[in-house]
Amino acid sequence: MAKDQAKFLELCGEEIAPGASVEINLNTATLHTQTKIDVPIIIERAKKDGPTVLFTAGIHGDEVNGIEVVRQLIAKGINKPKMGTIVCIPIVNIFGFIQKSREFPDGRDLNRVFPGSRSGSLASQFAYQLTKQIMPHIDYCMDFHTGGSSRFNVPHIRITGQNKRQNQLAEIFNAPFILHSKNIKKSFRSYCEKNDITALLFEGGKSNSIDNVVSNTGVNGAKRVLNELGMLRSKFKVSSPKNKSVVITQSRWMRASTSGMFKPSVKAGEHVPVGHVLGHITDPYGKVHYWIRSNAAGYVINVNEAPIVYQGDALFHISTENQ
């Protein structure tokens, strides 16, 4: 075998040869109807050895925009590498996708149970299978998410800011923003970091919705990273970034002081000064008029687009320190 020739790869008990295009299934569970629920995994391998990159979406089943990004990577053939291996799991939480729900059927958030357990809850058992059968073979991971509960996220990459290679790839991805945020305990991102997998978490758009700008940002960013890794085939062009990503090191949420009907007056991505009117809360009878003003100068990272809000609901996420 030539020095740079890839070797056989074993995933979910199947041996996958160099140069192969394979779809395998990771069994999630059996329903009460005895119907098996499988998670399709699409694997594309080059004959030449190289890194193994994982694209995931739908860890939260209602985050459809992330699923659309991975779908496009597959449909356009971007996932066929020049070297190495690309593994795509467009829908990790197949249960939630079917139900248009964030959670697993057991009510748990899959992104809070990693690395899982062989005998724990249904979500925990699935996380365990993913971490045992797939993740030991992964070098890099790009995980695509959206905002939840009608909250629209401006396209951005979330990283801790403490990993040099992760910082570099986040800049190469070139989303409009890079947000420094701590890893959440038992999240998929936290698991990746603890197991020396360089992971980028992409956020953009809102749940149960597809936004073309967000999708294009995700696809173009993925192409740039694959190009950096030497895996993108020459037929695909990488667009030159118009601007460097704005790096946000500190941010805060603004919450509703009262309940009522809500209308935001700014969009995600805008820069606002202190005191700028961000939105308006009123009541159905025209008696309450509450204007929400920015308490910091910065970029609006997230906007709640729900028409009805309750006191304490998160309305706007605003940067307070940028690089």
Rank of each mutant, 00 (worst) to 15 (best):
D313C: 04
R102V: 03
I16S: 05
C192K: 08
L73D: 11
P81Q: 06
G66P: 10
S319N: 11
V113T: 09
P136K: 07
I67M: 10
A256L: 08
A170L: 00
V64S: 06
Q162K: 15
G298N: 10
I94T: 15
T33S: 12
H60V: 00
T282C: 10
P307C: 09
D313Q: 13
I184L: 11
K242W: 00
A123Y: 00
V277P: 15
K287R: 13
G230F: 05
G221Y: 01
K47S: 12
D4N: 13
G205M: 01
I178V: 15
K82S: 13
H60D: 12
S124W: 05
R233A: 04
Q72H: 12
E23F: 00
A170N: 08
G116C: 06
I89W: 05
G50L: 05
I301W: 01
V113M: 08
P115W: 13
N216Q: 15
V22R: 10
R165L: 09
S190Y: 09
K186Y: 12
G275D: 14
S187G: 12
V87P: 02
W253T: 07
L9F: 01
N195L: 06
N216A: 10
N195E: 14
L122R: 01
H271Y: 14
R293E: 14
G204S: 03
R118E: 15
V69Q: 12
I197G: 07
I86C: 04
H317T: 13
T146K: 01
C12E: 15
I86W: 01
I16C: 02
V225M: 02
I134F: 07
D106T: 06
K242L: 14
S209E: 13
S239G: 01
T258Q: 02
D283Q: 11
I78R: 02
I37Y: 05
G147E: 07
V274L: 14
G116V: 10
V309C: 03
M261S: 06
E14A: 05
G13F: 05
